[in-house]
Design a binder for these strands. Structure first.
Lengths: 240, 240
DNA sequence: ACCACCGAAACATCCGAGGTCTGTTGCAGG
DNA sequence: CCTGCAACAGACCTCGGATGTTTCGGTGGT
């Protein structure tokens, strides 16, 4: 195994073992390199790699630090990964989102604070009557993010955030090509909001399913896939 | 922005734009470095970073290649990320798994081939009567992996795989500390298998929920968390 | 047709020299 | 005493070249 990979594992172990806690500063390059028994160049490669996945944070002129390691930080590195997937796997991502989003929405109906729900409602009103596609998608992302956050599970929230990336592009197409999409989206958002405000997890969950499934259905047609539609069906999920 | 980060983005763009397709070979270090306008050292840092997340694959003596970019490859980079999370966030991961696993199991009941179901059943028989904890956990992982694979969604499968990592450690503890865990696990696995074999998605889904919830419940107690148990409840998910 | 050997190509690693940014220190001025 | 500016030191950034290792593919002998 290359020394650089060894170094990555060593640093990883130092963090997992607790020798390096979140926020801690690493020894300086030269020192750490000597300690791990490799050159500064190789060490830098290791650090850079750990930097990409948000485990380390280097600040020029200052030093290298361990990040907070919070889920939202580490999981948003996944956004980078997800970006590499082509359109042919978007449906698979969307299928996963179709599983998680309703669950998150249901949880949000149970756990969101009244203030957060109010803010969620405010988001609905912020949109103009004839918004640009970009504004619509941005508002949509914000809406779903707030709900995911309201689930009370940061991992779930970050995961949904990552999965929304590729979906966002799809939604842009949709806004561009499908006439009634804007009105439909707004209606469904309102329905989801009202279900959450009424503290009705089942209803909220169902509306979320309908919402995501709508995008999924449209995308499936748009891609001209001949797949068996049941492939992404979620059995026994809906009580109604 | 550091030149290395620019290089990472450049390479990323080359791949996303299709200039570099999966399996393609990159220009040699010196050539690519000149083309991107930086030194070999800096380029190597970029390559190493993209290597960590399985986007590139360097083979000494041969060259640097773009990986297949298949979901299972990119998502298993997430395993690396998940490893960094401490025990206090394991419950959040488990909660997500509790959402995904039942859905995947339900899908598997619909889509697994008869041969795959037979192999799944064979897994149940492979375990000795008094297996070591390691053997039990390994068998458990394999069992759930096969089900996740049977869902027909590679993204879902890889995601569950990643989430199982931290859970695995927990299961080891469980096996070590909880007496009836082995028998209970075997019973539930058998029940899940039978439900899938009978093509009963709802039943399979419910058993999966019971299975994961059992681990979750035990872990919650073991960690002595005083959290509101409803925090991770999935509302309206069970038909029964 | 098969196998061992050899050389070219490409990555792995190391090194040392400059450059740039950041946080700190110390001094002068208000 | 407090404030502001300038110089300094520490740490990371970037570079380019030299040397070691591994792999691939061609060559020649059997």
């Amino acid at each position: 195994m290359p020394v650089t990979d060894v170094a990555i594992d060593k640093i990883k172990d130092m963090i997992i073992s607790g020798e390096l806690a979140p926020g801690d500063r690493l020894p300086k390059e030269a020192e750490l390199a000597q300690r791990l028994g490799l050159s500064r160049s190789s060490l830098r490669e290791a650090v850079k790699a750990l930097c990409l996945i948000r485990v380390l944070d280097v600040r020029q002129g200052d030093g290298t630090y361990v990040t907070s390691l919070e889920p939202h930080l580490l999981l948003d590195a996944m956004t980078f990964v997800v970006d590499f997937h082509r359109d042919d796997t978007v449906l698979d991502f969307l299928a996963v989102r179709r599983i998680l989003e309703p669950a998150a929405t249901g949880l949000a109906a149970l756990h969101m604070s009244d203030e957060d729900i109010a803010e969620l409602g405010a988001l609905l009103g912020e949109l103009e009557d004839s918004p640009t596609v970009e504004a619509l998608v941005a508002n949509d992302l914000q809406f779903h993010r707030k709900i995911a956050d309201g689930s009370g599970n940061p991992v779930l929230c970050s995961l949904l955030d990552s999965l929304s990336g590729p979906t966002a592009r799809a939604r842009i197409w949709r806004g561009l090509t499908q006439e009634g999409a804007v009105a439909k989206t707004r209606e469904q958002h309102t329905a989801i909001y009202e279900a959450i405000a009424a503290r009705e997890p089942e209803l909220a969950r169902s509306w979320a399913t309908v919402h995501v499934a709508g995008v999924e259905q449209w995308l499936r047609n748009a891609l001209g896939t001949a797949d068996d539609p049941t492939t992404t069906d979620e059995p026994a999920a809906e009580a109604s």
